[in-house]
Simulated scan of single mutants.
Amino acid sequence: MLINRFGTLFERLVRRIETAESLDATADPVAERAGRLYGGPRVRSLLAGTPLSHPLHPLLITVPIGSWAAAMVLDLVGNKSGARTAIGVGLLTAPLAAATGTHDWTSTVGGQRRVGWVHALLNVSAIGLYAASWMARRRGHHRAGQLLTIPGFALLGASGSLGGHLSYARGVGVDVTAFDPEVPGWVDVAASTEVEHGRLTGASAAGVELVLTRDADDTLHALADRCTHRGGPLHEGTLEDGCVRCPWHDSRFSLADGSVVTGPATRPQPVFETREEDGRVLVRHLATG
């Protein structure tokens, strides 16, 4: 079937992009510079969407895409001024959407980074065409402006397909603990003497990786070990003011309830109930965070 053929061709194309190491020569330096630009924890948290507990980029991209789709409809019905206004709205909001997407992209590596780089290049090309369309319309060249939006929207669609692949096929922006199994009942995970104040200890319960530690008052804490942002091993991180800091991208989670203190993580870290019996540490199913 035609749909199956298209899907196969798309997967082959994406695979070629993912394995195209030649893209690293431009993608890596740009990602490193952007990472330094977004280096502050407050800026990173805002761009990631931490205050919303939801990635910000998918929300923002709906505005320029919707505006430019509306412009095509307005062109079809002959509303020239409305189409130009819709294109302008898209151009005004596209930079913020691009900034949030670039922020998310800086924490990717390998094939994900390469696909994200092509995704970004297509978006920049589409924005350029829509900017040219707006200028042509402003000068009274409405026909030329309409023609420029056709390849612009096509590039936008191609870029969106790659963005969808990153989210739904590669899991970029997805809470990596979402599909962890539930721990059935109380499970013995470690000796009490192995879990100390000021030290992070890795453990496992029914196939779920954990990180264990104690407060200064000897309160026991157990969180999922894989960071919800990109899966960093929290037991290799550091303890800071009642929080555990991820060693990969510096997200900080409260030991008490797993909430995100600073991003780029947007989802809280799953927390486990704990108790001690006969010198052993037991945990049970994930509490809702």
Rank of each mutant, 00 (worst) to 15 (best):
residue 60 L to S: 02
residue 115 V to M: 02
residue 93 T to F: 09
residue 119 H to S: 01
residue 58 P to I: 05
residue 43 V to F: 07
residue 124 V to C: 04
residue 88 G to S: 03
residue 84 R to G: 04
residue 92 L to N: 02
residue 132 A to K: 00
residue 89 V to P: 05
residue 126 A to C: 02
residue 108 T to W: 07
residue 105 W to T: 01
residue 105 W to M: 06
residue 87 I to C: 08
residue 104 D to R: 14
residue 90 G to C: 13
residue 104 D to P: 06
residue 55 P to H: 12
residue 128 G to E: 03
residue 45 S to I: 11
residue 69 A to P: 08
residue 99 A to K: 04
residue 62 T to A: 13
residue 111 G to L: 02
residue 48 A to Y: 08
residue 74 L to A: 13
residue 74 L to E: 07
residue 84 R to C: 01
residue 38 Y to A: 06
residue 82 G to Q: 12
residue 70 A to E: 02
residue 41 P to A: 12
residue 60 L to F: 03
residue 41 P to C: 07
residue 98 A to M: 02
residue 129 L to V: 01
residue 100 T to N: 07
residue 104 D to G: 10
residue 131 A to K: 01
residue 119 H to G: 02
residue 94 A to C: 06
residue 58 P to A: 03
residue 134 W to V: 00
residue 88 G to D: 00
residue 124 V to Y: 14
residue 62 T to K: 14
residue 118 V to Q: 05
residue 53 S to C: 13
residue 121 L to R: 14
residue 48 A to G: 15
residue 66 G to S: 12
residue 96 L to D: 03
residue 96 L to S: 05
residue 48 A to D: 11
residue 93 T to V: 10
residue 85 T to S: 09
residue 82 G to A: 15
residue 58 P to V: 08
residue 95 P to N: 06
residue 125 S to P: 04
residue 86 A to V: 00
residue 131 A to R: 01
residue 83 A to L: 04
residue 42 R to T: 13
residue 42 R to F: 10
residue 101 G to Q: 09
residue 121 L to V: 08
residue 70 A to M: 13
residue 98 A to E: 00
residue 48 A to W: 13
residue 112 Q to I: 00
residue 137 R to Y: 02
residue 78 G to I: 08
residue 50 T to A: 12
residue 85 T to V: 14
residue 77 V to Y: 13
residue 137 R to E: 04
residue 77 V to M: 13
residue 38 Y to N: 07
residue 71 A to W: 04
residue 87 I to E: 15
residue 48 A to N: 08
residue 48 A to H: 09
residue 133 S to E: 02
residue 43 V to L: 15
residue 76 L to P: 05
residue 95 P to R: 04
residue 120 A to Q: 10
residue 87 I to T: 14
residue 36 R to I: 05
residue 82 G to K: 03
residue 69 A to N: 12
residue 96 L to W: 07
residue 99 A to D: 03
residue 54 H to T: 12
residue 64 P to Y: 14
residue 105 W to P: 00
residue 82 G to W: 09
residue 106 T to M: 11
residue 45 S to H: 13
residue 47 L to D: 04
residue 120 A to G: 09
residue 105 W to H: 05
residue 113 R to D: 03
residue 61 I to W: 09
residue 46 L to V: 15
